[in-house]
Design a protein around this nucleic acid. Structure first.
Lengths: 136, 136
DNA sequence: CGGGATCCGTTTCGATACTG
DNA sequence: CAGTATCGAAACGGATCCCG
């Protein structure tokens, strides 16, 4: 487990369990990585890199390490030339798939909703924080 | 919408919709805030502050503003002395409740699983990244 | 009561260059 | 191919003081 994850698992009360999920899945690219590994079963470093539209190797490596440390994916190194490294979901990672799917679905709906908002010319009486009115 | 949220909604491809969810819900205390507003229907600033075990006012204010900007909660100001401000879920926020619940459930299970790992004395052959072995 | 202003340390992201 | 090393910029969480 990452130190950060461990701290949160230890110290936070049950009331905020959702924060644990955010701590584990909240890094850049992480949900996408889990999603792709869910679809493809096994992926090499370079394949992940291309599918994700090229985050820098530095960044991708760190996210993968963190997911590994938190137990969601496994990393298998083939000591050969040229090197080859395979990533898969662990049991824990497969257990997270429904959550990732839910994140994907809600995020898609939210993005679609907001894109409609962006497309629509701001109409009079639109809701740009006009609640500064005086209800009482 | 926050600038950050808007950037992500605009620029990311559909393949990474989950990142949108993380962008919106990924701040400290945010899932907890939504959770509490789901339970209590309406809460004042001070009530939220106490229920969350006292984040500083500065931090709580910022998270509430971001959630408001992203359209998940509403803020109603009563111009009286002493002041009174009420927070509620918006329609968008109510729509996020199933997602928050899923985050809470998975986070709870993950935390329980990892706490068992922490409690168990590390047994021989435990999995602290021993995959550096040579499969081929 | 419900903040705003200011400041700061840490974390995180990301670009560039290099390597077994 | 799959990284590592180094560096800079920015975002974030948080403390402290002040205010209508």
């Amino acid at each position: 487990m990452r130190e950060k994850t461990e701290r949160i698992v230890r110290e936070w009360t049950d009331a905020c369990d959702a924060e644990v999920s955010i701590a584990v899945l909240g890094g850049a690219w992480k949900p996408s990585i889990l999603s792709l590994l869910g679809e493809h079963d096994v992926l090499r470093f370079g394949e992940l890199s291309r599918l994700l539209l090229e985050p820098t190797a530095r960044v991708l490596t760190r996210q993968l390490r963190e997911l590994e440390d938190d137990g969601l994916i496994t990393r298998e190194v083939y000591r050969q030339v040229p090197p080859k490294v395979e990533y898969r979901l662990s049991d824990l990672g497969r257990g997270a798939q429904p959550l990732v799917d839910t994140l994907t679905r809600w995020g898609g709906e939210y993005a679609a909703h907001q894109r409609r908002m962006l497309a629509a010319p701001a109409s009079v009486g639109d809701d740009e924080r006009q609640k500064e009115s005086v209800p009482q």
